[in-house]
């Protein structure tokens, strides 16, 4: 037990926590934008899987990590367009179209993997990037400033997303469209365009989230690589009360549990692995149950807009 509480282990555990939070943070920040505009995109997990495969495959072929990331962004954008077309233009039930997108991503990424790769292969992903000076800060340096670049980008996005939503005209439009699309429409705002933009921005971040798993955390691809993290990301948006900072704390809560159970397994603590694996998910459910933020939800969430009907 003393081993677990040693400084080295705690540093390692917290460092792992920030790394594991990265995909959740990208995906949940993106989903925050989609939901702020009134669209629930339940297809996040499917987008992550497709993008994770795309990034992995491009890196496998070219060894160029940035090209891999670009592929993930492109795939995310494409799937975002599909989601927008179905739920914004065609006004389909958002929950159903999102689940459809997720099933598509799950099946398609497995199929492509079997056909194009076949066996388990690994790539060398984004390396750790020690930030000079900052990484020398006692305790916090090794915990945070010794991670790969995607981790830094993800956490830098938190204040940037907050700034966009709270301090720009674009953020005001997105929120208005999610709260009262008829009001936005009467001010000459193109409701559908704002929703396309928000959903696609969210899908691009989901794509980066997928890449952050396949080319920076595990550096490989396999069937159902995300293990439902896309759904956790959607849950984190509710947990975080539709705010970037809240979403970040949610992501850290999930990943600290995940990091803890991984380190317990590494250290050989005598707990069945399946029970340990369950821990972060159970924690998420409990956290969602106790923190009910219903009142803060965008009022037009899940409601297609048709002029003259509202």
């Amino acid at each position: 037990m003393n081993e677990i509480l040693s400084a080295t282990v705690i540093t390692g555990m917290l460092n792992t926590m920030f790394t594991l939070a990265t995909p959740l943070l990208f995906a949940a920040l993106g989903e925050t934008f989609a939901q702020k505009s009134g669209v629930v995109n339940l297809g996040v997990d499917g987008i992550m899987l497709m993008s994770a495969f795309a990034a992995f495959y491009v890196v496998l072929q070219t060894t160029n990590l940035w090209l891999g990331l670009l592929a993930a962004v492109a795939v995310g954008f494409g799937m975002g367009l599909i989601m927008s077309f179905v739920s914004v233009t065609m006004k389909a039930e958002q929950g159903v179209s999102g689940i459809g997108l997720q099933m598509f991503g799950l099946g398609m990424s497995s199929l492509l993997f079997k056909v194009m790769v076949g066996t388990v292969k690994t790539v060398s992903g984004f390396p750790r990037l020690e930030i000079p000076l900052l990484s020398r800060i006692p305790f916090f340096g090794p915990v945070f400033f010794n991670s790969n670049i995607l981790v830094y980008i993800a956490f830098a996005l938190v204040p940037i997303c907050w700034w966009i939503l709270e301090r720009t005209t674009i953020g005001l439009m997105i929120k208005a469209v999610g709260q009262n699309p008829a009001a936005a429409d009467s001010r000459g705002i193109n409701v559908d365009l704002v929703r396309y933009g928000s959903v696609c921005f969210g899908a691009i971040l989901a794509g980066v989230a997928g890449a952050s798993i396949s080319i920076s955390i595990v550096n490989l691809f396999q069937d159902n690589l995300t293990a439902g993290q896309g759904f956790i990301a959607v849950a984190l948006v509710y947990f975080g009360g539709w705010t970037p900072i809240g979403v970040m704390f949610g992501a850290l809560l999930f990943s600290v549990a995940n990091s803890f159970q991984l380190w317990m397994q590494v250290l050989g603590v005598n707990v069945p692995a399946s029970i340990a694996n369950m821990l972060p998910y159970v924690l998420t459910i409990v956290a969602l149950t106790v923190t009910v933020y219903r009142g803060r939800a965008p009022a037009a969430l899940n409601r297609p807009f048709l002029r003259g009907e509202n």
């Binding site: 005001l172 208005a176 709260q179 009262n180 009001a183 001010r187 009022a299």
Partner: peptide
Amino acid sequence: LVPTMTVAQNVALG
């Protein structure tokens, strides 16, 4: 009007 926003935000919208 967007009920959750302020008067100024509603006027600035769009």
